[in-house]
Design a protein around this nucleic acid. Structure first.
Lengths: 253, 253
DNA sequence: TCCGCGGCTTGACCTGAATCAAGGTATGCC
DNA sequence: GGCATACCTTGATTCAGGTCAAGCCGCGGA
């Protein structure tokens, strides 16, 4: 796929970030890069996209891109770094909804309630593109490619949100998490077998609905069985096929 | 809200079904009813919606509206009855994704993979409206109200899919299930405190990621505590406030 | 009427993972 | 350096809920 090739060329493996784009070549990590490239959109349309987007950042680790309860006004494409979406429920329990890599769109779950239903927190140095949603929706009526891409992203997020439904074991969850992350990096042209986890164990645990201690133990066991190698937050995947077999009930369905 | 008033007038409480609509008054249970009424759309647009919709059914309990793996071509609005979406994972485990009442749209999660990622099964006598998705998307470019409604529905489904993520207790899950169902009936103008569960205990259990035995036990306990009254598949909610308190960590966040 | 079957309930027991507790390690700040 | 803090790991213990087993109920068919 053309988009991947371009990404592979431009991205620096160590820290995912794209170029800034210009009038003719919009950000490669842009959420709509694929549309622009594939659709061969004309200059005026590209300019319109340029007009409605605002680069924002860098955010430092811990800073929030948007907050739970804020009025919805825009979606954000991650350009660099990792974003965690989370919320704190009524009695203080934290719930991590997801981790978002460059090229991914956050805030889509805010359209319906017309307010962000979660916090978006930078896990490292994060840069984003802000798309005013009313403007984007208007543009989408004139550019079917943009509309279609929005539908696809929304639809994909439904599937992703449902991924961890089902009563899976801690092993299945951890394996699916690692393989999933690996695949998403691979799609963006980054090395897929050496992962740097930008999130704390506690966040992973929370996202997977297991205890932090369980994450430690399972990673340990995977390492003891030679499936992965763990060095703090650096994890290399040694036997991805076997890991995939464990994760299969979650990923392949 | 006007839509609710109209629904309340037309729906028969015992078996949710709408009238068939005509050129000027589209089905009340139609997924886009609210748009048409609120937006005051013109006749030609209404006719276009009429042209692209196909009524289909009735389906008998157990019959499938669409199947996992089938090429995506349309979304369906439930007109009458209850639909269960489910899939069977690689090693035979069943996973219920959701239950869908009249007025709700199914198949939105199929846009991205361009294939239905689950089965849609009728739980009782079901009637649906079929909307060709390419036609609907095209119409949406000309009718911003339709586009917006699609965005909202997709966005809401993301939230719904994420609802049961998080490690909630069996009590919390059951309470949230009952309150959620009650609220959805109420929105459609049906009595909200006497529920007829069209799905088997096993389906509920599966949807909530607990064992069927646990569903029995928790319902029993809720009844013993005077929160609900259970008679087979008929459940009446006695103390909705207390039930809501239990469900709060899931529903209110 | 009886039988068979699927769905539901209840009790007894077991287990995966949570919780509790303690200690280790890395990092930043004074 | 020395300290504080946040994060991570490991072991011991506990428990919510799963699994197994048995029996009940309601319904359709012969």
């Amino acid at each position: 796929m053309a988009y991947d090739d371009i990404a592979r060329k431009h991205f620096a493996p160590s820290h995912p970030i794209s170029d800034d784009g210009d009038e003719h070549h919009f950000c490669n990590s842009c959420a709509f890069g694929a549309v622009c490239i594939a659709g061969g959109i004309d200059k005026s349309a590209l300019n319109e996209l340029h007009c409605l987007v605002e680069h924002s950042g860098p955010y430092q680790a811990g800073e929030k891109i948007f907050r739970n309860g804020e009025r919805f006004g825009a979606v954000f494409a991650v350009r660099a770094g990792t974003v965690k979406t989370q919320l704190v429920d009524i009695d203080g329990r934290e719930l991590v909804l997801g981790f978002h890599l460059p090229g991914e769109l956050i805030g889509l779950n805010a359209i319906h309630p017309d307010a962000y239903p979660c916090d978006a927190v930078a896990l490292d140095a994060v840069e984003v593109c802000r798309f005013s949603f009313p403007a984007l929706a208007t543009l989408a009526t004139r550019m079917p490619g943009i509309q279609q891409e929005l539908f696809r992203r929304l639809s994909r997020d439904i599937g992703n949100a449902a991924l961890l439904a089902g009563d899976y074991s801690a092993d299945e969850r951890l394996a699916a998490f690692l393989i999933g992350l690996s695949q998403r990096y691979a799609e963006r042209g980054f090395p897929a077998d050496t992962l740097h986890l930008t999130m704390a164990r506690g966040d992973i645990a929370n996202y997977l609905c297991v205890a932090a201690e369980t994450v430690s133990r399972v990673l340990r066991r995977f390492q003891d069985h030679g499936l992965i190698h763990v060095d703090g937050r650096n994890v290399s995947i040694v036997k991805s096929a076997e890991l995939f077999t464990i994760a299969r009930p979650i990923l392949q369905r």
